[in-house]
Amino acid sequence: MTAEPAAAVRPRNRKQLIVEAGATVFSERGYHAASMEEIAAGVGITAAALYRHFPNKYALFAECANVTADRLVAALDDVPPDAALADLLAAVTRVTVAHRAAGGVYRWEARYLDRADRRLLKGKFARVVGRVADAVRREHPLPGEHLRAVAALGAIGSITMHHNSIGRRRVEDLLRASALSVAATDPTAAVADVGLVELPARPVPRTRRSEILAAAIPLFERDGFAVVTNGMIAEAVGLVPSGLYRYFPGKADILAAACLQAADLLTQAVEHNLRGVTDPLAALTATYVAYSFEHSALNSVANAEVVGLPAGLRRPLVAAQREHIAVWEEHLREARPDLDTRQARVLVHAGFGVVVEAGRHLRWQDTPEHRAAVAALFMGALDL
């Protein structure tokens, strides 16, 4: 008599494995491009087995976002109440770097979660920021301790926004030092050349194609990329839905074209504002901050949605970003010859992370004071 094959043993931590795989796929592909089938394959199970743990993609995404926040809360709870700021930031850095591949979920939680889940998650992150802000206030009694705490955490969280390869210990040390420098930076300190930068004027929509670009981004930012339809964009510019296809194959092409247009404006601004300056890093910083405030709606949409664009549309955007970072890298290594190429890139991205989180904290209210504060914190992230 032939024995029956032994039944496969279900791992006790299968739900945890699903969450880990889900967070990674969401981070790499974006919420809408990710599929439950792809996540299930990453765990080695069928989609049907995955649905026994999570009823739909939203439920899994919400769990991934909560796990991200819970890890940070738990890491800080393990640090004594009177611990030094360096110890708090070291704990946050260890967790963030260890789960770097899954950290992109945080960038999109506010866009995709419903109001109740967003409120729950906001409370968890507020605990993290509050704990760091208390230590910042205690050790560096300067203005804006909450802004500095948010910006320091943004420097650390930036590691989830790029794929630069660097050793774990090296990147932890680099990010912790950057965050400490941000926390100790006076946001009211003036940055050289911050008031002198110029941005090219936004193109006046003179063609139907440019009208479509100008109309689509506010819709994407307000309603969400997935919700906005080609018909809604067409209506905003006075076209019938089918008329849109004469200019763009679909809304993904519209987003990609808008991002490329903005990247070109940034390139022009950098070339102009670097001419004849004595402090190129200050000029670069002021330019990037001005660009971020000027194009906050587009950047918000791009940070959440570009990762999910088809490779052919995403490739030119990635190339434009790399060219921009190469300029930063050149000038940063001139100012800090102790840095190698990988370290310089990590610090540049840390500065970008500062701008994203500090800008959000300031609700992207575009004032000279806000631009100056964010620029000062960006320079702090470079640890000059």
Rank of each mutant, 00 (worst) to 15 (best):
D253R: 06
R170D: 14
I212N: 10
A216D: 09
A269H: 00
K57L: 01
L175S: 10
L72Y: 01
R206D: 11
L89S: 02
A189T: 06
V95G: 03
A375P: 09
A263N: 14
V150N: 13
V128Y: 01
L260G: 12
R137Y: 09
Y31H: 11
V171N: 04
L265Q: 12
P141I: 01
I18T: 06
Q16N: 13
A75I: 10
P218Y: 06
A372Y: 00
L219E: 13
T160P: 04
A83D: 03
R137V: 13
V270T: 14
L284V: 08
L113C: 12
V204G: 14
E334M: 11
F248C: 09
H32C: 07
G42P: 04
H295K: 04
A283Q: 06
R333Q: 12
V356R: 15
L317F: 09
T46N: 06
H163Y: 05
Q343E: 15
E369V: 14
V129R: 02
Q268H: 05
V289L: 04
L384I: 13
A319T: 14
D117C: 03
E28K: 15
Y31C: 14
A155I: 12
R169Q: 02
A269Q: 04
T285L: 01
V105D: 05
E139P: 09
A8G: 09
Q16C: 03
V240T: 09
L382V: 12
A234S: 07
A133K: 15
T341Y: 07
V307I: 11
R360M: 09
A69E: 05
A98N: 07
A84V: 02
H146M: 06
V9F: 00
H324Q: 04
L88V: 03
A286R: 05
T341W: 00
R360P: 02
N13H: 14
R371I: 10
A286S: 15
I217A: 00
W364I: 14
L362H: 13
F26P: 11
A252V: 06
E330P: 11
G104E: 00
E20G: 04
V227N: 13
E172S: 05
V307D: 05
A110D: 12
A135Q: 07
I254S: 04
T96G: 07
N66K: 10
D279Q: 03
D77C: 01
G123E: 02
R115P: 03
Y245R: 04
V348L: 11
P55V: 05
P55D: 04
S210A: 15
A302R: 07
Y112G: 02
L85Q: 09
G44R: 01
G195S: 10
G130E: 05
C259W: 10
L213R: 15
R52P: 01
V79D: 06
A269R: 03
L298E: 09
I159P: 00
P249Q: 11
A74C: 02
A376L: 10
P205I: 08
L120T: 13
L265G: 10
R168D: 12
